[in-house]
């Protein structure tokens, strides 16, 4: 589903944020991406989503090269940044319809999906209000709904649990699993190691822009915990 091959990103000034990263995410997998602050997680996710250009390597999503065929790659992808800023001058329902129009989602499908996810996240009643009046959590839920209604083949999430209440976080985990059962894949970054350990089929750990460990969660963790593995790799233990 997602093939990142020898991906590198160098910022103006010469700082190498990510160095020669190779990583594969298969259909049906939930893939966790963890690392310290500034390790290169967000830089990688933004490049995968086609939001940010990169210097070296290739990124392919469902057969579409993000550089050669960005529109094709984006059509099967949904990306949620760590702090999603949504048009404050729009109402919630307008934003969902805007996204649905950009992704050519048929009217009946969008009505059904908006109803399903908005009801589940208890946001239906607020969809008629301007996004400017939403709390941080409500915006996060709206952004999540806008991602789910696309029925993406690859869902990319940057710190998706920040700002969500426990019930919404639980719900989201259920929907992520549902999405993967349908053959899609989820690639997300998080600092919540307990969640990553429980939720992810595979995990990659990045340090100073370099991949230091990756593989199935069970193999990676072994008899210890993900926290122990992570701290050991970070040199904290």
């Amino acid at each position: 589903m997602l093939y990142i091959e020898h991906y590198s990103k160098t910022y103006p000034g010469g700082k190498k944020a990510v160095d020669n990263l190779t990583l594969h995410v298969q259909p049906g997998e939930i893939y966790g991406f963890i690392g310290h602050n500034g390790a290169g997680k967000t830089t990688t996710l933004r490049a995968v989503a086609g939001v940010m250009d990169f210097t070296e390597g290739t990124i392919t999503i469902d057969g579409h090269d993000i550089k050669k065929d960005p529109v094709g790659a984006k059509r099967v992808t949904a990306f949620l940044p760590d702090n999603p800023d949504l048009y404050e001058f729009m109402k919630g329902i307008d934003y969902l319809n805007f996204i649905a129009d950009l992704y050519d989602i048929p009217a009946d499908q969008r009505t059904a999906d908006i109803g399903k996810y908005a009801d589940a996240f208890e946001l239906t009643g607020n969809l008629g209000s301007p996004i400017g009046s939403y709390s941080h959590g409500m915006r996060q839920k709206l952004a999540l709904i806008s991602a789910f209604i696309r029925r993406p083949r690859l869902l990319i999430l940057d710190e998706p649990f920040v700002g969500l209440d426990p019930a919404a976080a639980h719900l989201m985990k259920g929907y992520l699993a549902e999405l993967c059962q349908g053959g899609s894949a989820v690639f997300f970054s998080t600092h919540v190691l307990e969640v990553a350990e429980k939720l992810c089929h595979k995990i990659a750990i990045i340090k100073h822009g370099r991949l230091v460990r990756s593989g199935p969660t069970a193999e990676l963790v072994g008899d210890s915990s993900l926290e122990d593995v992570f701290l050991e790799l970070e040199g904290e233990k």
């Binding site: 048009y87 001058f89 729009m90 919630g92 329902i93 307008d94 319809n97 805007f98 649905a100 129009d101 950009l102 050519d104 989602i105 048929p106 009217a107 009946d108 969008r110 009505t111 908006i114 109803g115 908005a118 239906t124 009643g125 607020n126 969809l127 008629g128 209000s129 301007p130 400017g132 009046s133 939403y134 709390s135 409500m138």
Partner: peptide, 29 residues
């Protein structure tokens, strides 16, 4: 301070093209 209303009832939505959606967004802004 603008508090979100909680009385919206979802009805059937209609679809339009990408360009129309972008134009509508520009007009709303």
């Amino acid at each position: 301070a603008r508090s979100a209303q909680s009385n919206y009832k979802l009805s059937a939505q209609s679809a339009s093209s990408q360009k129309k959606a972008l134009l509508r967004k520009e007009a709303q802004r």
